[in-house]
Write a protein that binds this DNA or RNA. Sequence first.
DNA 1: CTTTAAATTTGAGCGAACTCAATAATTTTC
DNA 2: GAAAATTATTGAGTTCGCTCAAATTTAAAG
Lengths: 213, 213
Amino acid sequence: MTGLRARQKRLRHERILDAALLLFREAGYDAVRTEDIAAAAEVSVGTLYNYFENKGDLLLALVTLEVEEVLEQGVAVVKSPPADIAEALNLLIGGYYDHSNTYLTKELWRTAMALTIQAAETPFSQRFTALDRSLTDQVCALVAELQRRGLARGDVDAVALGQVIFNTLNQMFIEFVKLEEMTIEALKAAVARQVEALALLLAAPGPSLRPLD
Amino acid sequence: MTGLRARQKRLRHERILDAALLLFREAGYDAVRTEDIAAAAEVSVGTLYNYFENKGDLLLALVTLEVEEVLEQGVAVVKSPPADIAEALNLLIGGYYDHSNTYLTKELWRTAMALTIQAAETPFSQRFTALDRSLTDQVCALVAELQRRGLARGDVDAVALGQVIFNTLNQMFIEFVKLEEMTIEALKAAVARQVEALALLLAAPGPSLRPLD
DNA sequence: CTTTAAATTTGAGCGAACTCAATAATTTTC
DNA sequence: GAAAATTATTGAGTTCGCTCAAATTTAAAG
């Protein structure tokens, strides 16, 4: 049987997290004090800090939830993408963007991203960065899959190009969360223009272009 | 004649900034307290906040200095770029990276970027974002120039592609400042691989490829 | 040169994240 | 089952960014 201590530990951990996530989403990160979270979880502030490094650590739980679901969703697209390059990329990226407000608000995304950059080399940042890397890998996988199917030029470095695409979709997402009034549709449109340009370059040489030698 | 008031104002502003920049670079952003800056500038904390919105505003001065010099440097590259696409892009981007540690350390960059994201819609963020936009424009201008010279495919959206390139170089720079042990050479190598991929796609149809119709 | 008005400086005080020595609860030992 | 040892909780206290009412300095008016 699990000892009383272990059981209480699990329970408290869960209660603190639940309280934090609820309050963050309902009032925003900055407006919620650690004291409020502790009170809602019926523990003292000291205990809260016994379970989590800092306030940001609590936020990471939400982010992880969000990104892991997004990754799962992406698997299907990579497995059998549309035959058109731009369409395939927009489907994957659009899936990321559409899911992005399931658990997190723009403010929470901003905070999470800021913490990741500022407090680099902390567990928080490293876990966040690992999620980013998983997303990059997924984009690379899609590019490779498009090449495998002969839909995209095979002579280009799929990993390098996948990184470029992830970097640009991520940077555009940062701009999106920075502008409170920008809609997801506007974000998608801006990225679609970039995807269009890349898709044109990446198009497999068709009947109108052919090596001479 | 400039009144006593105006003269003292200019002097104090300058003294505060100088003190902040010196202390930031020598001890790091977090380690320096606003009280320390005020003391070094021989004013009270209240006065410091009369001249600057907040601690981050002081950092912005350094960032602005850095980016404005970088932009100036880039003008020459855009005006007469090397004939090779990859070489031209790497020259511009390498120039950005090489200059990046002239006034700022990695820690200061991290802080500045984090503040820009977190405190979006503040003057700080908007000025930083404007600098980013200038850099994007410069990359776009280089792509357009390469097209004008017939070095790059002319049928692709130069603005969209320029944005993609800036986004990726910026994101890679973020990764760089996040890893304290990563060298500029390693950063350049990683970006060069991406530039290589794009340059291949962007190569103007040469003697070995030609439209059939 | 006073008096009045305007602008500027000042530093004690506030709020919120986080710490740590004292206390309490649980487990182990005999 | 009592005592000792281990582990966890607690909340007052510390720190630092930032504010604001009072005091001071400079400029303008009479």
